[in-house]
């Protein structure tokens, strides 16, 4: 089995090539998840690039991405596999009355009638695969139980067909917004990575790589302003995604410099609560009045 990355530096470098800038801890953990063949649980506030990390890994290694988006009420039939009931029914009717029961029974529980869902798809693939289980905290506790078997042994048991084991272990990334504590059992099986807001230098690099048209001074101003916003006690602090959106907006509006007027005109891109908006305008303006 080939390894995913050769070293933490290799992981960082290759992720950078596909446009995902990491810090050392992220690169190290990404490398380890591949080397130890353990699932990687990524937690952090919305918009810091958790999902993007999985996509970047798949781009960097040339593996295909299989995505399972979690939501409340997600069940086995939509996460793992389902029998194609309608097709089975057709098969029985087409066979007519004379077919033997044993024959029919064996026929309708075969590969042909199996609808594979993301988890099973990822396990059965022979090519390198990145399995992204997105927003795992949105699911019910039962689905976590389902994930346990898949994550620890990389196998799925289908009563009619037997146990399907992974030919090649996928690189698994689970993301969570921490709206709910995941169970200890799931956490124990995973490596853990907390993605927070990046420091100013790295954020500027990210902005410059995502929005190449932006000027150096403007990028610096945007990053500084966002850093100051994060210092305020806001309901939702702006994340990297919002910084990039802001930079794109400013470039699209052909604004070369960030001043008080442009800030208050475009702040809606960064802050999504009225009270946050008011507070930011107040706080960002105050020092300028004093000087």
């Amino acid at each position: 089995m080939t390894s995913w990355f050769d070293s933490p530096a290799d992981a960082g470098g290759r992720l950078q090539q596909v446009g995902y800038l990491t810090d050392d801890a992220t690169a190290t953990t990404t490398y380890l998840a591949g080397a130890l063949e353990k699932p990687l649980l990524v937690e952090g506030p919305a918009g810091v690039g958790k999902t993007e990390l999985a996509k970047a890994v798949s781009r960097a290694t040339g593996a295909e991405l299989v995505r399972l988006q979690c939501y409340e009420g997600l069940d086995e039939a939509r996460a793992l596999y389902e029998w194609n009931y309608k097709k089975q029914l057709l098969r029985i009717q087409a066979a007519g009355q004379d077919a033997a029961w044993d024959q029919t029974h064996d026929d309708i529980f075969t590969e042909e009638f199996l609808l594979t869902r993301p988890l099973l798809t990822a396990i059965r693939r022979a090519e390198p695969t990145v399995l992204l289980v997105d927003e795992v905290d949105k699911t019910d506790v039962e689905v976590e139980g389902l994930l346990l078997e898949v994550l620890s042994d990389f196998q799925v048991t289908i009563p009619e067909m037997g146990t399907v084991s992974a030919e090649r272990r996928p690189y698994v990334v689970l993301t969570s917004n921490a709206t709910r504590e995941l169970s200890e059992a799931v956490k124990r099986r995973c490596l853990y990575l907390h993605l927070g807001y990046p420091d100013a230098d790295r954020e500027r690099e990210i902005v410059e790589s995502q929005v190449p048209e932006i000027s150096n001074t403007l990028a610096q101003q945007v990053v500084d302003a966002v850093a100051r916003l994060r210092d305020l006690q806001l309901k939702k602090a702006p994340s990297i995604a919002e910084t990039i959106d802001w930079a794109r907006t400013l470039v699209a509006l052909e604004i070369g410099e960030l001043d008080e007027h442009t800030v208050s005109a475009t702040l809606g891109v960064v802050l999504k609560h009225v009270t946050d908006h008011d507070r930011a305008v107040q706080e960002l303006r105050r020092p300028r009045l004093r000087t």
Partner: peptide, 12 residues
């Protein structure tokens, strides 16, 4: 440090 943290620390 990053290796230890990834394996042992599961809560922010």
């Amino acid at each position: 440090r990053a290796g230890y943290a990834a394996a042992l620390v599961k809560r922010r």
